[in-house]
Design a protein around this nucleic acid. Sequence first.
RNA 1: GCCGGUGUGGCGAAAUGGCAGACGCACAGGACUUAAAAUCCUGGGGCCUUAAACAGCCGUGUGGGUUCGAGUCCCACCACCGGCACCA
Length: 924
Amino acid sequence: MAGRRQYPFNLIEPKWQHHWQAEQTFRAFNPGETIPPQHPFAARHRGTRPEALPKFYILDMFPYPSGAGLHVGHPEGYTATDILARYKRACGLHVLHPMGWDAFGLPAEQYAIKTGQHPRKTTEQNITTFKRQIRSLGFSYDWSREVDTTAPEYFKWTQWIFLKLYNSWFNPASNRAEPIDTLPYPAELNSTESGPAAAALESRRRAYRDSRRLAYVTEAPVWWCEQLGTVLANEEVVEGKSEVGDFPVVRKPMRQWMLRITAYAERLLRDLDTIDWSDSLKEMQRNWLGRSEGAEVDFPLAEADTLAPEERRLRVFTTRPDTLFGATYMVLAPEHRLVERLTTPAQRAAVEAYKAQVAKKSDLERTELAKEKTGVFTGAHAINPVTGSRIPIWIADYVLISYGTGAIMAVPGHDTRDFEFATKFNLPIVQVVEPPEGQEWRGFVADGTAVNSANAELSLNGLPTPEAKRRITEWLEAKGLGKKTINYKLRDWLFSRQRYWGEPFPLIWKTGSDGQPYHEALPESALPLLPPALDDYKPTPEGQPPLARAKDWVNLPDGSRRETNTMPQWAGSCWYYLRYLDPQNRAAFCSPEAERYWMGTRSAAAAGSPRATPGVDLYVGGTEHAVLHLLYARFWHKVLYDLGHVSTPEPFYKLVNQGLILGEDGQKMSKSRGNVINPDDILFEYGADAFRLYEMFMGPLEMTKPWSTKGVEGVYRFLGRVWRVFVEEASETEFEQSCTAAPDRAAEFFEKIKLSGSIRAMQPSPVQLKALHACIKKVTEDLDGLRFNTAISALMVFINEAMTWEAKPVEVLRPFLILLQPFAPHLAEELWARLHQAFPPSLAPLAYAPWPACNPEWLIETTVEIPVQVNGKLRDVIIVPAGAPAAELEAAAKASEKVQPFIQGKTIRKVIVLPGKLVNLVVG
RNA sequence: GCCGGUGUGGCGAAAUGGCAGACGCACAGGACUUAAAAUCCUGGGGCCUUAAACAGCCGUGUGGGUUCGAGUCCCACCACCGGCACCA
């Protein structure tokens, strides 16, 4: 343990946290607001309208307030953003730096099921703990903008945005969302009818509309966990078991709400090129979107007498249309709708047995365990459209119903999976691609040259793969047999959960004149739609969602019924960054003025600031949200953009992932390993400034790195040295007493601690100015590049030197405190205040003190050390006047005693001289 | 299997193609102290010489290459971490 305290952080930190809170130091001001003249912001920007200032929006991924409290991983990102927020304020930018709670979620609900305690209660307790912990770290959040996704004033707008999705369709012609009223009906739905026919038409029109909405209903399989009595999201199912409790889960079809994110696949992919995210993160999103270019090809069915003429074909998607001549069989997913009708009587039993077997398999068994291919022949055949051959149609579970058309043409010669399958079932394998010299053609899947690919009308032979693809696609299109197609792996977003602790859908169900149920949106005036009070949070015995228990809530007087599903946890986090802009607004999710100022580009242009960018200027968070949250939020933002509610097509223009913090043993922190570090313990022992500083000093922000409590002591000692540079050695006794005395007396001794007598209002020496300006330069550059660890080392270098000065000029120490402030704000404020007391006149409050500029004049050296190399090996370091010309350097290098033995008797073939840098003598 | 990232002292790490190891931890020696803690000062990659030092040689995962000069750029490989995984 640390033994005696290095400095009285236990008195300093609460003092300044209270001060910032009372003064609202870090409030940001919306357009049209008046900045109170006594607010510290006014000291820097007196008389300026907030909207005239260049903005900087810096955002953290808000936490889920779990019962376990804050984890050391949270403050890593939060400290990084806080440092930048404080730095940007010092640079004169108007900073928006908010925090909130993503508080809907399963743990609170599970706890409610077990104890009967309302999730609201658990959530409030957890938020209180999280807020206390986050506040104790001294972050400069504007707490007046705090949001909580479970507050009705918040989720009112989550429901409102859902209604926007519900009331929109995606117009492929304009490639954007438009209000559902603009959806044209097809000709057959446009006729005017009367009487009973009108009612029938109306319900067909409704069905048509409903099938085009961005939010739509469909029957989809979900994970059902009998033991937990609830449905789980994919992320909550690990290897066929529930993540909570490790109970088995089964697939069960249920009526589900979906969001049409697939309509945005192309824009989600394309716009990645416009944003500044790490390559790995963008790549993860690209993989998730999974774009592939290829062709859809129709294969005529050989025996199809029972089918309508337009159905006598089988459509497949392929990325390798150039291999069409090599398609020797076809495979349907077992769930494909044509399986039933294609199967011959002789094969029916086998097909039914196979389908039953597949239905029992979990997804896991269908993928990982399925090393061995399985499948059965349907008895049916298709015709290869280019060769005219009759080829068999099989079903096999290696073909997925959810991708492409759920059917493939199999080219066993040049596809690994088809090759395995054909080998096992003795299907013909033919070569249609020639690999580059000497390689085996069987199973060759890369690009090569087309062979054996010709019929009476078309020959691909001799064409390289890309060219062959183009040629055959054109031919298929001309013949009406196929067309160029782009496919995405991305699936529509399953948006409903059978839960209690989530946003209820603002929808009701009615029964149509045809007896069919249909859904209708609630009016905006009905928002927020609150969930009902319940005393049991389990689903109903019939497997209905918990909300169905509240009969009075579900059944409305007019006979209609409420939707009983709730939204997933992701809903609230899809737009929270917009609510921060105007969190108290009761009339809108955010005023257009606030949105334009904080997210748009106009204010930046008006202020002429080259630094201001559109959208969130910097978003910091963990990689665990690489695809889900970050994809969903981009999708919602684009819909809001299309509908005119936000000004930019992307929400987060720059994003940085903080790296994982491992335990001291280099393993992932986990309760079971017993290597979890509790931030509260570190704060108690070393204080918030040391904790913040250590998390930034560990290594580069984005890197995974192990925790070291010894390392905390190191930066803690540094802060102690800073303290001792500023305070009188003779204050030792007071300090000692302030540590040991009862709390009420401690402050008394604390106040008696005197500023060091070595601090003077004096002219700084060139050496002192050089130390300061080198520090300014390094810290500034490193903050701009998010290199916090090396910035801190520069601060250490400065203090190590300043400690040795007998007399310390105030003019040098004050700028140092401005540099220190973002990293260790409490200590910096305390020393700034003490300095201010001893050396008036008054200056701006530290939080808004202008960032010091580096004056390069003070960094100029009179002499420089120049390394001298012979054949690239270091032989000497010579000291020469700065700015010495090349000839002088060369002569000095050759004259060096240490260099002499290496060049004597040898010819100097070449001399490389970089003035001010280096001399390299090349000898032969 | 595919994609992305990372390999540097005992440890965390630092180095616009130009003095490898800044800064910090741990360690060792010294000062202060009755003593300890705290603090301050000094030392330090390896090998080989040496009383000690100087000098010398080797050294950034491995093997090649480009260059006057490579931790840094190029090619091939190895290990670890993360993501995706029958996506036709």
